[in-house]
Design a protein around this nucleic acid. Structure first.
Lengths: 217, 217
DNA sequence: GTTTGCTTCAATCAATTGTTTCAATCGCCC
DNA sequence: GGGCGATTGAAACAATTGATTGAAGCAAAC
């Protein structure tokens, strides 16, 4: 299909660059590698994008444009109570990070966020801010009387729990082994974070009291 | 005086390399930059370390050796109840990350953890594992009946909340402004995470006592 | 068939990279 | 002071980097 090997040379370059920038970073990836992967000549970068830096910027833009469209809007939770929407938010965030539609895009965006470059701002504005606003709308409804500063930290606690599994998977694996880490299914993590957060916010009983529902396999 | 500009050339190189590797990564930092900053000739790297790669490995080792010694042992909480030790753990972790004794070391180690290299394993083993074991010893005492898998996720929730503030400070600042982010003092964050976690685990009342019913919508 | 505009190619450029060389210098013990 | 190993310095190395050139290819339009 055109998806696996698109005919448009510009897109071929973007996808090749995305994969290599994601894996090796801006300095680590060379224009020759990128063009080789795209099956093109080095001059192609100069022709289509001008230079390496503009190729990088365009690659990030393309990645986050795909990310925005592919991440999909949060499920239809408009009418549900805020607690249910919070659960939906956690589930959507974990799902997007765990098995994104295009892994290289996500990897590149995460790298971009951890090491800000001129291209970072637009990623934050277009990709991250909508999610953040969604979360804090839920929290404002859920905790109307909480001072804003503390509501901010509650939000950080929620996304901090979610981000951990993507940002620190390598360390977790080195510490506890691949088996233990891989055993944590997406559903299990979602369930845990939701329950942990609900318990913290008093929306449900304390965390450990609910344990027995698990089949303990 | 000797601290700002140590006389030992080897150490001068290590400190210069640490700063530049931390800021620009392995590929981004050049040997000439490093030697310039150290006030030495390019040949120094070859003489003292052999090549750039071995300099990098030694730099990471040195950084995490300093980190281990400087991070300091967890405060004397041996005899205290596990809940108090958990509070101490959160406080110590946040403090180490917020204002580490040597910021460049911490930055380099965090970079190393997010983009694993051959030098990562020893960092994890010597620097991270002791902390992790300390945390899970507390959790085992605190939640003896919880299945191990869930205890693991509880640990991830605790450190995930803490790590967020270091790993995502840039994004937070872009989203909410420097003022809002900087307004979160170390004490405030420590207090928040501790209270959030305690509430989740049923060690204290729900986080915000303001939420009574979900009368909303 | 020829032209036209877009795209690709091989070859090459200048600059930078990590690395090496070898002479000069330093510090120290005899 | 003389000798000597350890260290440093300036220069240059080969390789790789990003960038550029001009000719060749190729499609559609005329």
């Amino acid at each position: 299909m055109t998806d696996a090997k698109p005919t448009e040379p510009r897109l071929r370059l973007l996808l090749a660059a995305e994969a290599l920038f994601a894996r090796k970073g801006y300095d680590g990836a060379t224009v020759r590698e990128i063009c080789d992967r795209a099956g093109m000549n080095v001059a192609a970068i100069n022709y289509h994008f001008g230079d390496k830096e503009r190729l990088y910027i365009e690659t990030v833009r393309h990645a986050h444009a795909c990310g925005v469209s592919d991440a999909g809007p949060p499920p239809q939770l408009a009418g549900l109570p805020p607690a249910e929407r919070l659960r939906g938010f956690v589930a959507a965030m974990l799902k997007n990070m765990d098995a994104p539609v295009r892994p290289e895009s996500m990897q590149l965006l995460m790298r971009e966020l951890s090491q800000p470059s001129p291209a970072t701002i637009s990623v934050v504005e277009d990709f991250i801010r909508p999610m953040a606003m969604g979360l804090f709308a839920i929290l404002a409804e859920l905790l109307p009387d909480l001072p804003e500063r503390q509501r901010l930290m509650v939000g950080f606690s929620v996304v901090g729990q979610c981000l951990y599994y993507r940002q620190n998977r390598t360390v977790s694996t080195l510490l506890f082994g691949a088996a233990a880490v891989d055993a944590l299914s997406l559903d299990a993590i979602t369930e845990h974070i939701t329950r942990f957060t609900f318990a913290a916010l008093g929306l449900a009983g304390a965390y450990p009291t609910v344990v027995r529902t698990e089949g303990a396999v």
